[in-house]
Design a protein around this nucleic acid. Structure first.
Lengths: 249, 249
DNA sequence: CGCCCCTTTGAACCTGATCAAACTGGGTGG
DNA sequence: CCACCCAGTTTGATCAGGTTCAAAGGGGCG
């Protein structure tokens, strides 16, 4: 019945036509936050765009540091590697979030960044960004806030890994995703996981089997519905309670 | 026999007389790294000094953010607290290291900082530091490196907590202390722990009993000697091997 | 000297890991 | 169109590292 619309002419890729910061839906979450129009245009002037397909690396440990990256479309994971080869995912990055700040201190990337899905990033050459710092104080301020926020974020991961039991970690993970989706205008209770169970387990310091069991358990308890990577949080308040350490249900 | 010297006249506190950055032994590790003499004096101009006695807080979660602090004498621990009250130590800070960077993003301190021993800090009002950034590019650059280094440090804590077994964590902890003492001109193999076993356990995501058992085990294996808080690493290479994941001895 | 806190050591327990096998769903090629 | 395949996932059974609970052992400070 619905055959004709399926064969419609290909749409123009509107994103490809307008890629400036001011037209980007993330500009109030991203680096240009708080800039006025002329300032934003100056920032735009130094920014390049780059596509990264699923599973591809944006950068790898040891790469020379040239640019920071802001996620424009898609999602990434960053991971560190032990001398003995063990990998640890240190974070998942959504649209508007900045990647590569750990590279500033050594001029060398200290982690791997891999796209979880076909993605697009804004490439921000750091040397040119530094030049702008002198001219746009608001930009410098906000940059400091972003770095500081990254430090805080990592601290809460440390808290999670050092202090929480499996269920609490997983609940905290879901609640965190939920609020980040909400901040981007998406549903806080229904979303698709972009990472595999293995990624989740690695990030949370748990095995893939544990993640699977936790999903089953929470599903049985009616806190969520799950089908493949599609998640629906049917009892977000209870999940928040779990995440903050409330034991009994 | 040795009675007379015990009653000697009190020495002048030389530190109290000369507290400028340029006279500080840490200035090549600390914020003023790389500054020339006049620049260092300008930085000095905004810095105050403050004593913090053992167990006292330098700042607490929720305190308004005004200043960054550089450890001048002594040692600190920083910890986060869960909604449910669980505490997690996120780091130990030695001389020359900067405290408070996580507060920039919210203008509110996000962790507690407590002195492990009687200590002294340099208080760096952030608003005035920001003014200097515009005038001393070297200072800004180095500040970015310091923040970035903190991000990297935390990433390695995440790696430690997410991926390592107890023994490996503890070895990594000792090796880390060792190299930081070495960087400050102290022995890399013989030093005093400033923190309690409980602090160590908390930091490493282990219990105090586990720490105690690990100390006993490594002692029995001849990798270290321990008497109270005095530690001697008698086989640093082997400890490094343990820390990087070499299993068998 | 005695008290108290920190630490060490022992024994039982439990959470989450490991090992193993079955299942699912989406894509591929016959 | 369907059988197959394969990666990712779920579920079960067993195992082990580290926790918990308990008690004894030091060391420093008043």
């Amino acid at each position: 019945m619905n055959q004709a619309p399926l064969r419609a002419a290909p749409l123009l890729d509107i994103r490809a036509l307008r890629t400036s910061c001011s037209s980007c839906s993330m500009h109030q979450l991203c680096l240009p936050m708080g800039l006025d129009e002329p300032e934003m245009q100056r920032l735009d002037g130094i920014i390049g765009r780059r596509r990264v397909s699923r599973e591809a690396s944006l950068y790898r440990i040891g790469d020379k540091f040239v640019s920071l990256y802001a996620v424009r479309v898609g999602q990434f994971k960053t991971s560190q590697t032990n001398p003995d080869g063990a990998r640890q995912i240190t974070g998942f990055q959504m649209t508007g979030e900045l990647l590569g700040m750990d590279a500033i201190s050594t001029d060398t990337h200290q982690c791997d960044a891999v796209a979880l899905e076909d993605s697009e990033v804004c490439e921000i050459p750091f040397a040119r960004l530094e030049e702008l710092f002198g001219e746009i104080p608001t930009l410098l301020r906000h940059f400091h806030r972003i770095m500081s926020k990254e430090i805080t974020r990592e601290q809460s991961v440390i808290l999670l890994l050092g202090n929480m039991r499996a269920e609490q970690r997983f609940a905290a993970f879901l609640v965190n995703l939920s609020s980040r989706y909400a901040a981007r205008g998406y549903s806080s209770t229904s979303f698709q996981l972009r990472m595999t169970r293995e990624d989740i387990g690695n990030y949370l310091g748990l095995t893939i089997e544990s993640i699977s069991r936790l999903l089953s358990k929470l599903k049985k308890e009616g806190l969520l519905k799950v089908s493949n990577r599609q998640i629906e949080l049917t009892d977000l308040p209870m999940l928040k309670a779990l995440a903050t350490g409330a034991e009994a249900c």
